[in-house]
Simulated scan of single mutants.
Amino acid sequence: MVRQDIPLPDGPVRTCIGCRRRAAKRELLRVTVGPDRDGRQTVVPDPASSAPGRGAHLHPTRECYDLAVRRKAFTRALRLTGGPSSAPVGDYLDSRHDDDRPHLATD
């Protein structure tokens, strides 16, 4: 049964694996599995949504990332065995947050 009181956005809709809220695909960050420097599986950001393979979606906030890590949602959503590192996603979100901060002039 679809809830009538919550309007869905136009276009594709996905569910955030952190907070479990539905949102327009364009508002979420896609993550997928890729190799790290040592060749082990790790969860990596896919901001262009162009990487092949299974993906999962996450609001690009530290809160949703932390919820996804705590709930082990990356492992379930990406159908992985073991506990792959999701540190590259956290690093990506931190770098985006740093870019949003105003830069102070040093002169």
Rank of each mutant, 00 (worst) to 15 (best):
M1T: 12
M1A: 11
V2K: 09
Q4H: 09
Q4T: 08
D5T: 03
I6H: 04
P7C: 11
L8H: 10
P9Q: 07
D10H: 14
G11M: 12
P12Y: 08
V13L: 11
V13A: 10
V13E: 03
T15H: 00
T15R: 01
I17T: 06
G18F: 00
C19V: 00
R20Q: 10
R20P: 00
R20V: 00
R21A: 05
R21W: 00
R22Q: 13
R22E: 13
K25T: 14
R26M: 13
E27G: 06
E27V: 07
E27F: 12
L28N: 02
L29R: 04
R30I: 02
T32K: 04
G34N: 07
P35D: 09
D36M: 06
D36T: 06
D38P: 02
G39E: 04
G39R: 01
V44P: 07
S49K: 13
S49V: 03
S50N: 11
A51G: 04
G53P: 08
G53T: 04
G55A: 10
A56L: 01
R62C: 05
E63W: 00
E63F: 02
C64A: 10
Y65I: 06
Y65H: 13
Y65K: 03
D66P: 00
L67Q: 12
A68K: 01
A68W: 00
A68Y: 02
V69E: 06
R70S: 06
R71P: 01
K72T: 07
A73L: 06
A73K: 02
A73T: 01
F74D: 03
R76H: 09
R76V: 06
A77K: 09
L78G: 04
T81H: 11
G83Q: 13
G83S: 13
S86K: 03
S86Y: 01
S86P: 10
S86D: 03
A87T: 14
A87P: 08
A87S: 14
P88M: 13
D91L: 14
Y92C: 12
L93P: 05
D94H: 14
S95I: 10
S95G: 14
R96S: 10
R96C: 15
H97E: 15
H97Y: 09
D98E: 14
D99E: 14
D99Y: 03
R101N: 09
H103L: 14
H103V: 14
L104A: 15
D107H: 12
D107Q: 13
D107G: 15
